[in-house]
């Protein structure tokens, strides 16, 4: 098929790479609050004029500043996908389920995260809950939630 043609072996080429190999990012104003909350095992959202957004943004879609609020769930699957290959086309040992998950007490969006569930069982509207790392291992990152699991 077409994508099997024009491989690198077929052409004279000149390798190059960028000298910047890494970037470091800061969490941002509300992101810092959200990161602290992750350490405490809490998830924050932002109360805006048209409802609560998760995750919190620095500003609301209407351009105004919102108010940080805690969201507690229950969390539900809005949509999902099942990943069979990694970035480079290698087959994963086990398919991984990823989902967009929204808490019932928010109006918009939600978190993207891994759901630890049999791919056969996942469905839209499924109730799930976060599985946190033990407190001493949390770093203020989204990965402080190891995964979501069926509630």
């Amino acid at each position: 098929m077409a994508w099997k043609r024009w491989r690198i072996e077929d052409v004279i080429h000149y390798p190059g790479s960028q000298e910047v190999e890494e970037y470091v990012y800061t969490p941002g104003l509300h992101g810092l609050e959200a990161a602290k909350a992750f350490k405490e095992g809490r998830i924050l959202g932002m109360k805006c004029g048209d409802g609560v957004y998760v995750p919190p943004k620095t500003y609301c879609p209407d351009g105004r500043e919102g108010e940080l609020v805690e969201v507690k769930g229950p969390w539900r699957v809005v949509t999902y996908t099942i990943v069979y290959e990694d970035f480079y086309g290698n087959k994963l040992e086990e398919p991984q389920v990823l989902a967009l998950i929204k808490p019932d007490d928010a109006d918009h969006g939600g978190l993207i995260h891994i759901v630890k569930v049999d791919p056969e069982r996942i469905h839209l509207g499924m109730e799930v809950k976060p599985h946190w790392k033990p407190p001493e291992k949390r770093e203020g990152k989204i990965t402080d939630i190891e995964y979501f699991e069926p509630a």
Partner: peptide
């Protein structure tokens, strides 16, 4: 998003897969 999404190792096809699933539903 470097804070909330990158740590999960996303690739581009993910979002489209999720959007496609939502559209199918």
């Amino acid at each position: 998003d470097p804070i909330l999404e990158r740590p999960l190792g996303p690739n581009l096809i993910w979002i489209f897969a999720m959007e496609m699933r939502r559209y199918m539903y």
